[in-house]
Design a protein around this nucleic acid. Structure first.
Length: 801
RNA sequence: GCGGAUGUGGCGGAAUUGGCAGACGCGCUGGCUUCAGGUGCCAGUGAAUGCAAGUUCAUGUGGGUUCGACUCCCGUCAUCCGCACCA
């Protein structure tokens, strides 16, 4: 009898769903396990084998946990707001709602065909009213708590998408969506004050178990640095120019200052700065540069020296010039720096070009040649002279500054506040009303959701206005506070809003009273294990930790950190070793694999193809190896022989394999778990027959990975209970070792022979046996034995001279 | 520039964390089998050398520690990723 994977897979998928085998039970007595995978963006292209790999890891763990008696919550949903759907709508005129529904249906059927054990009763769609109502609700809570605010600043702007982007969405100076160069534009935008949570997000990392590289990337992104703020007096004014520095101890070496060209102080002293026309033309020059160009010109510094506008060094009392230059960014620190050319290469380059003084304050380098950033004895630094420890000199200087009232210790972050509004249609409307008398007024909670209105044209206006701005019936409203005529905010939230709290909604997806019931939140608690892509580590993972922590702070969720553990899978590359992309034509469609070889083969292969955390290329022929494996597993049904329990020959192998698979599935080592099952299968084939007990153990171990074929076998051998709810096989540690073992006999560390000894042999026995081995004798004869070692169960090493 | 990771057969990758390098799979070679047609079964497969038992070499590269190193230490090269004029 051949295994007909097509009908079998369909049969089992239908039965699982019919019986609700994978539905999580609220408040069950069993221990809970909440496994989370990043919900997909339902794009028109359909799913990708990469999605399958991303979900298969925790899919296997979830199935195993159910067999181990856990109440498992393993949900899925759709992160459906976003630009690709909107752009498609602009191009085709088809409403994004319709496109989204079609795509979600497509994704759902694809996911079901693979046999994932998701709880389909808890599916969420971020674009549904009953979901985004709560996204808006959380936004209003943030607004209420001063975490959502408007500000006019320089923002990242994509001229092609005509949209403001967050810092996270413009990594590398490129638009996250269309990869155009980002420009800096002065705009009045919504921000979420994520910087207020910088320290909490940093400290929270201590409480959770994230892969080290994930943790590090978050730390770097937050980018905390400590130093001091120093106030420099501007000569002939009451003004001070404030700077941030990590090295206040080099203050005696400050020979000039540099302000960002956009620094607002400049405009206030237009009159005093006699060459303000130069300032303006330099600004115009800078505005033309993209973020990329601005960072490319690292060596060739440009700038303008201000005339009639100088500062006073607060420790030396010397008058020093002020420049403007675009190597100083308005977005970090205070937008101005104190330049220490002797000990900072950028300042050094600038000083050389503009003829500023270079004063050495730390010994150890050669400042004739380049800036010296190392440690050393302080010189030319008044009260700091002679100090050799960086920490001491920094502390001494800060103390001095604080006593004089011209500065204080301070902290800075690279992370910036989250630019939150998008001038787009397909997103959650921001529930704020502008009233001439009351200002910004939140839409009352009981009026949520603020529905996304229908529009005819999804394209943003040429002036970069949201499509919603054209809908008078949406824009015009009354002020909830005073009843006067008012206007609505017409921008929408970014794609990342809905995904910032979705893991909470899975806990109670149909609740109309709250985003999730408090008791249910308590029962399910943290996500026990969250797996997703590395590309989200400095976006979604930061954002969602921030939202969650905020909800904790206002008492809405019972625990600080949302995710107890976070891992990341590696990409699946195309067969050519390149990243899969439509344009390269190297995309593998999971549907094709399921059609041709079956879901079990696809599932097995994505886990077997390599280290789960690393990128690996897809290989047509390697998939066939997994197909062969699954077919051979089916072949076991023809090999059932006599005998109870494990056969003497295979008992140890079974215990070892149960142990290995049990361990490996917990540590992302799916590839070696499958390899161990393949090895065991080969051993069974070599033995020629399999006992019922052996077969039952084997299919139980394989079930989380290849659930269909194993359920089918389980049925064929007459078992009525689903394998999915059968207990996970147990092993006996004592039976994991063979009675007799073969160990290596080394002479001077080189293997010269092998010898079989009892596993519990002592060192003397083992060494004596090893020395008698003919292969070893030849190397020992005529030499003096210096040392003899026995490493239990491994080898004997005889050192001779 | 800073930070991180990786480097093992023809390929994807193993290696109990200092103990027999190359598990498992692909590919390849030979044989068997079937209605000869992609996907069955068996055996072999790191390199060099040898009729052979064997011997020598081999985990990017150069040193070191050790009875013993893919694993630890120092140097070096290469590739990939992240951040980037962050003061």
């Amino acid at each position: 009898m051949n295994y007909d994977f097509k009908s079998a897979e369909k049969k089992w998928q239908e039965r699982w769903e019919r019986e609700g085998v994978f539905n999580a039970v609220d408040g069950s007595d069993k221990p809970k396990f909440y496994a989370l995978v990043e919900f997909p963006y339902p794009s028109g292209a359909g799913m990708h084998v990469g999605h399958i790999k991303a979900y298969s890891g925790l899919e296997v763990v979830s199935r195993k946990r159910r067999m181990q008696g856990y109440n498992v919550l393993f949900p899925i949903g759709f992160d459906a707001y976003g630009l690709p759907t909107e752009n498609y709508a602009i191009k085709t005129g088809i409403h994004p709602r319709k496109v989204t529904d079609i795509n979600i249906e497509k994704f759902t059927s694809q996911l079901k065909r693979v046999g994932f054990s998701f709880d389909w009763n808890r599916v969420i769609d971020t674009t549904q009213e009953d979901y985004y109502k709560w996204t808006q609700w959380i936004f209003l809570k943030m607004f209420e708590n001063g975490l959502a605010f408007r500000d006019k600043t320089l923002v990242n702007y994509c001229p092609s998408c005509k949209v403001v982007l967050s810092n996270e969405d413009s990594q590398g100076g490129k638009c996250d969506i269309c990869h155009s160069d980002i420009i800096q534009k002065s705009k009045d935008v919504w921000y979420l004050r994520i910087t207020r949570y910088a320290d909490k997000l940093l400290e929270g990392l201590d409480e959770v178990n994230f892969l080290p590289n994930i943790r590090l990337q978050q730390e770097n992104w937050i980018g905390r640095s400590t130093g001091a703020f120093v106030n420099f007096k501007i000569k002939d004014t009451d003004e001070t120019l404030r700077v941030y520095t990590t090295r206040p101890d080099t203050l005696f070496g400050v020979t000039f200052m540099v302000m960002a060209p956009e620094h607002p102080l400049l405009d206030r002293y237009k009159e005093q700065i006699s060459n303000f026309d130069e300032v303006e033309s330099y600004r115009a020059e800078c505005a033309k540069k993209t973020e990329f160009e601005r960072t490319q010109l690292v060596k060739d510094k440009t700038g303008v020296k201000l005339s009639g506008f100088t500062a006073v060094n607060p420790v030396s009392g010397k008058e020093i010039p002020i420049f403007i230059s675009d190597y100083v960014m308005m977005g970090y620190g205070t937008g101005a720096i104190m330049a220490v050319p002797a000990h900072d290469q950028r300042d050094y380059d600038f000083a050389k070009k503009f003829g500023a003084d270079i004063i050495e304050v730390i010994k150890g380098g050669d400042i004739e040649k380049e800036a010296y950033a190392g440690d050393g004895e302080m010189v030319n630094s008044g009260f700091l002279n002679g100090l050799t420890n960086k920490k001491d000199s920094i502390a001494a200087m800060i103390k001095h500054l604080e006593e004089k009232g011209v500065g204080e210790a301070g902290v800075q972050y690279k992370m910036k506040d989250w630019a939150f509004n998008r001038q787009r249609y397909w997103g959650e409307p921001i529930p704020i009303v502008y009233c001439d008398t009351c200002g910004m007024v939140p839409v009352p909670y009981n009026e949520l959701p603020l529905r996304l209105p229908e529009v005819q044209n999804f394209a943003p206006g040429s002036d970069g206005e949201s499509p919603l701005a054209k809908i008078d019936s949406f824009v015009n409203c009354t002020c909830p506070k005073c009843g006067a005529k008012a206007r609505r905010e017409t921008d929408t939230m970014p794609q990342w809003a809905g995904s910032s709290w979705y893991f909470l909604r899975y806990i109670d997806p149909h609740n109309n009273e709250r985003f999730a019931d408090a008791d249910k939140l308590k029962y399910w608690g943290q996500v026990d294990w969250y797996n997703g892509g590395m590309e989200h580590v400095t976006r979604h993972l930061i954002y969602s930790r921030f939202w969650h922590r905020f909800l904790y702070d206002i008492g809405e969720v019972p625990y600080k950190e949302p995710y107890a553990k976070r891992t990341a899978q590696g990409l699946i590359l195309g067969p050519d070793g390149e990243k899969m992309s439509k344009s390269k034509g190297n995309v593998v469609d999971p549907n094709d694999v399921v059609d041709a070889l079956g879901a079990d083969v696809l599932r097995t292969y994505v886990l077997f193809m390599g280290d789960y955390e690393k990128a690996a290329p897809w290989s047509e022929s390697s998939v066939m190896g997994c197909k062969r494996f699954i077919d051979r597993v089916w072949g076991l049904t023809n090999m059932i022989g006599e005998g109870e329990g494990y056969s003497a020959k295979l008992e140890t192998s079974f215990h070892k394999t149960i142990k290995k698979v049990s361990d490996d599935l917990e540590t992302l080592k799916y590839n070696t778990a499958i390899a161990a099952l393949m090895t065991l299968l080969n051993q069974i084939y070599a033995a020629g027959s399999v006992t019922r007990k052996e077969l039952e153990t084997f299919i139980a171990l394989l079930n989380p990975i290849a659930p269909h074929v194993t359920e089918e076998i389980n049925e064929v051998i007459g078992n009525k209970t689903l394998l999915a709810v059968t207990p996970w096989p147990a092993y006996d540690e004592a039976k994991c070792v063979d009675d007799e073992i073969e160990i290596a006999v080394q002479i001077n560390g080189k293997v010269r022979a092998k010898v079989v000894i009892p596993a519990d042999a002592d060192a003397d026995t083992a060494i004596a046996k090893a020395k008698a081995e003919p292969g070893a004798v030849a190397f020992i004869e005529g030499k003096t034995v210096i040392k003899e070692l026995y490493v239990k169960g491994r080898l004997v090493n005889i050192v001779v001279k």
